[in-house]
C-alpha cells in the first residue's frame, strides 16, 4: 500500500505523545513523588526538624535554609487506602445506577427495535435530545423537583403524604446518575437489538419456545454485546462523577470524583495525593472493564457450544 501516506499520521503521533501519553505518565510521576524539605547539606529533614528550623527563623527576616526537592515515595498510594470506603461507596452507587438503567432501558430498547422504521428514528431522536442539553442544567432541574417544598413533594402533599426528605440523600445521587446516563444504556442496547431479526424470534416460537424461553434463549444472548457496552458506558462516568453528588447529594455524600476534585481545585490542595487517587480509580475501572469484557466473551463461548 501507500508507504508515503503513513507520514500523514506524523503530526498526530507527536500530538498523542504530548497530550495523551505524557499526561498519563505525569499522573504516575505525581502519584509516586512528593516535595520533601532538605537542609543546606542536602540532608532530608523530618517534620520535627523542619518545624524547629521554621521556629528558629520565625523572628528573623532571613530566608529559610530549606530547599524542596521532588523525591520518590509510596506515601500517596498508601494513604489512598484511607479513602477506600469512598471508592467502594462510589462503586456501589454507580453499580445500583447501572442496574436500574439496565432494568429500565432493556425493555424500552427492545420495544423500540420492534417499531416501524420511521417511529424508531423519532424515538431515537427523543432519547438523544435531553443529552444535548447541558448536563448541569438537567441536574439542576432535579434539585427543583426533589426539594423539600419542591414539585414532587407538592404532588405527594395533594394526596396527603409526605413531605419526604429526598434531596441530599444517596438515593438522589443514584437518581441523578440514572437520569444522566440512561441514554448511554438505551442506545447501545437498541443498536444491537435492531439487528435481531423478527424471523429469528419467529423461528424460536415455531420450534416451540414460549415467550420467556424466547427471551432468555434468543433475545438476551444476542443482545449481550449491547449489554456489555451499555454497562461500561453507564458505569464509568457514574463512578467517576463529582457534580451529581455535589448538586443532589448536598456535599455530604462524597464520591471518589469529589475527592480528586478537592485535591486539585478544592480546599485540600494536594496534587500528589490527587494523582494517586486518580491512578487507583483508573486501575479500578480497567479491572471492572475486563469483567464486562468477560460478559461479552461468555457469549462467544456459548456460540461455540452451540456449534
Amino acid at each position: 500500500m501507500n508507504r508515503k501516506s503513513r507520514w500523514a499520521a506524523g503530526p498526530y503521533i507527536l500530538w498523542m505523545i504530548i497530550f495523551v501519553i505524557v499526561p498519563l505518565v505525569l499522573i504516575g510521576v505525581f502519584a509516586f513523588t512528593t516535595d520533601a524539605p532538605f537542609d543546606e547539606n542536602s540532608k532530608r529533614l523530618t517534620q520535627e526538624e523542619l518545624a524547629a528550623i521554621e521556629e528558629e527563623y520565625a523572628e528573623t527576616d532571613e530566608e529559610l535554609p530549606v530547599t524542596y526537592k521532588t523525591v520518590f515515595t509510596w506515601d500517596n498510594i498508601l494513604s489512598v487506602s484511607q479513602y477506600l470506603p469512598v471508592l467502594f461507596n462510589s462503586a456501589w452507587l454507580a453499580l445500583i445506577a447501572t442496574a436500574i438503567c439496565l432494568i429500565i432501558g432493556y425493555p424500552l430498547a427492545y420495544f423500540m427495535s420492534r417499531f416501524r422504521a420511521s417511529s424508531q428514528r423519532l424515538v431515537q431522536m427523543l432519547i438523544m435530545l435531553p443529552m444535548w442539553m447541558n448536563f448541569l442544567l438537567r441536574t439542576y432541574a432535579w434539585m427543583t423537583l426533589l426539594e423539600k417544598n419542591g414539585w414532587i413533594n407538592r404532588i405527594f402533599g395533594l394526596i396527603g403524604v409526605g413531605p419526604f426528605e429526598m434531596i441530599n440523600t444517596q438515593g438522589a445521587v443514584v437518581l441523578g446518575m440514572v437520569y444522566n446516563y440512561l441514554p448511554f444504556m438505551i442506545l447501545p442496547l437498541y443498536s444491537v437489538m435492531t439487528k435481531i431479526e423478527n424471523h429469528t424470534i419467529e423461528a424460536a416460537q415455531d420450534l416451540g419456545a414460549g415467550s420467556i424461553r424466547v427471551f432468555t434463549k434468543v433475545v438476551i444472548p444476542l443482545s449481550m454485546p449491547g449489554i456489555a457496552s451499555g454497562i461500561t458506558m453507564v458505569f464509568v462516568p457514574a463512578v467517576s462523577t463529582f457534580i451529581i453528588s455535589r448538586m443532589l447529594g448536598g456535599g455530604t455524600n462524597m464520591l471518589i470524583g469529589d475527592l480528586i476534585d478537592l485535591q486539585f481545585l478544592g480546599n485540600a490542595y494536594n496534587p500528589n495525593l490527587g494523582a494517586a487517587i486518580s491512578l487507583v480509580l483508573m486501575v479500578f475501572i480497567l479491572l471492572c472493564m475486563s469483567i464486562t469484557n468477560q460478559l461479552d466473551n461468555g457469549d462467544e463461548e456459548m456460540e461455540g457450544k452451540m456449534l
Partner: peptide
C-alpha cells in the same frame, strides 16, 4: 481519552 474517566483525562491535562 475516550475510555478513561473524564476526570482523569482532565486532571492529567491539568498536570501537563
Amino acid at each position: 481519552p475516550i475510555i478513561n474517566p473524564e476526570i482523569v483525562t482532565g486532571v492529567s491535562l491539568m498536570l501537563l
